[in-house]
Design a protein around this nucleic acid. Sequence first.
DNA 1: AGCACGCCGACT
DNA 2: GTCGGCGTGCTC
Length: 806
Amino acid sequence: MPIPIQKTFTYSVTDEEYNFLKKGMRVAVSFGKTKLFTGLVFNIHQKAPILYEAKDIHQILDDKPLVNEHQLKHWQWIANYYICALGDVFRASLPSAFLLESETIVYKNEAFINENELEDDEFLIFEALQHQSQLTIHQVADILGKKKVMPIVNELIKKSAIYIQEKIYEQYKPKLVKYVRLHSDYTSDDSLNSLLEDLSRAKKQRVAVLTFFQLSTSKKPIKAKDLETTANVSSAVLKSLVDKNIFEFYEIQTDRINFKGDTNTLKTLNEFQEKAYSEIKETFTKKDVTLLHGITSSGKTEIYTKLIQEVLDDGKQVLFLLPEIALTTQIITRLQFYFGEQISVFHSKYSMNERVEVWNNVLENKTKAQIILGARSSIFLPFSNLGLIVVDEEHETSYKQFEPSPRYNARDAAIVLSKMHQAKILLGSATPSLESYFNAQQNKYGFVVLNRRFNNVQLPKIELIDVKEKHKKKEMKGHFSDRLLKLIQEALDEKEQVILFQNRRGYSPIVECKTCGVAPQCPNCDVSLTFHKFRHELRCHYCSYQRAMPNSCSACGSNTLDTKGFGTEQIELELKELFPDYKIGRMDLDTTRGKFGYQKIIGAFEAREIDVLVGTQMLSKGLDFDNVTLVGILNADTMLNFPDFRAHERAYQMMVQVSGRAGRNKKQGNVAIQTYNPYHQILQQVSTTNYTEMYKEQLQERWQFKYPPYYRLIKITLKHRDYNKVDSGVNWLFKALYASFGEHVLGPTAPAVSRIRNQYIKNIVIKIPPKQSLANTKNQVAKIKNTFEAVKDFRPIRFIMDVDAY
DNA sequence: AGCACGCCGACT
DNA sequence: GTCGGCGTGCTC
Ligand SMILES: [Zn+2]
Ligand SMILES: [Zn+2]
């Protein structure tokens, strides 16, 4: 069942159903008192339960399995590894349209006449049913303006005034395209001639018929829409031709997303790519997982495409994973250029219907689903025959899902998936995660390096600018040092483009009182509200709270409320003053609103309509701009001082990735990093792009402070509306865990946002030493969890476990 | 998770 | 007195 319960549920089936059903088919079953749910057949057996009587199933929903055995195995691994219910994985895997749920519908009993038997509320419902043939329970609640309506509904049923039924609605709507063909009466030539004569007076209709014949020469089915536009007639004209039995309409089910265009042969690899390629092939003979460490702009994608082509030629499917934000039109187009319609994209932005179609195409192993280019959740698609998985930007933290359960890491789950298919998996990155690099060094993974940029473009020159010094010498203008301004001017003089990065942290647009410094807070969460300029209101990021922008400060009453814009907005303003003759663009949550907002800015920048683009990290993912020669990082320090054991690793990755945007063409690019701390080891390592040094140093620290990749982490989060409850709960839990794991338990701590949606939050982290068994540790934690939940006071506290919580 | 059931405080 | 809030237990 698609619910967070550990057990499976047993239903009884008839002989006929028994013979028909297969694992992985969906069945509608009654679950609980009334509800119909979508369950998935997990096992078919003949051991009738003794302690209870199994219910019959309601209906079989599929005629062949929707989920295959590889997936069922994979789900079990995820549920077991990430400590969640199989139902959680089930729910996360399937597009929601596949998970039908019933709704209770109320109907009037036509034979009922004793209206005067009814109480006021009962009569209200009965009367509503005179006007509307059916009501949902929700509608009933609305009519009565009450929350508890079931007693009243039940009373009405007892009096035989109404009856109820559980209805399931199909959510997936196939897209049907209307086509036109000639009615069967008119297939002979004679009839056709007389037809045109008949239409001599109906001019438009005649045109429509003639156009139809013209279009028919291509022997392809003719869409009604196409006929209308080509013949320049309205749909009414076609309709009347159908009414006259001259044409007839028919419908064909079509996919919502289809590729149209040509494909091209693969580019030949340069000698360095070729070398890396053959090394990967070589490692694949010994290892199933290989890490490709290829510097930015080294042409990793071409290597991937060559590997993909080979797997396709072998008749196998390919999964190409990318972080959500890197799944841009640019990369999609680039792959479609080679593989055309063999690629399907899978995205969280896809509609439910689109996802269903991709799912079905993968399930049926259709031509158009040979390569799946997808984000995190595409690991759940029903692959039957995977030959290769590519995980690009392997280091990206967005591969980890945090909320809701299952809290899986798609890269790691993909490695397991590849094992199940006996497929190969390639992890690629210019800045590998420490854990993957470590695995490669330990010889667990194959390892291939590509350290030459494509077209032999040099790595950019990276310069650290000491902002403290600049301030002292009064060489700062707002956020800019004179040196950075000079570099910008030089680039602009050469008609080149510039990207400037501003870290997002601490720069969301909030409102603050100038008199007392108080910022309006969310009433449900422990955060300041953010200001949304376009609607002039205040909103909370964590819950859906919103309110109009107040006129005066709620704390001191003065009307000195000041709106602080995005950090990027401030930078943009400064730039407009400093470079009035150039076009300045800005990319942040504010300007990328709307469906095409993002694409519009990127498009304008690509078309060189924008000279300087200011943005957050979102700019650095999955985009190539060939005219950018300067990249500036305005404040490197915020990243370095972040309290997280991975802060330094991430800062390195982010800065190197961002630097990679500079000088993708012939000319060597420049990167300028402004910092208060130019001697920070990470900045030094960034400035020389010295990954190995960063790796060694960070690894040393991880060992010293007992962090991954040496130690594993399990994070436990407790949530409850009552602060004291969480607090005493978390202290109890800490003591219990400490008794088992001693100093390897950290906490308890409150997260940066310690209350969300009126739920107080506390964390505890358990570190698992290299030699300690993960399975045993999980069992011990599970035991402690059981004891915890046996305490009456703690039972209502939400207990969340997150394995590899980083 | 969702839902029914039952207990308890707070309003007409 | 009713209504809604919330803890409790259960789902084949
Ligand atoms: Zn909030
Ligand atoms: Zn104030």
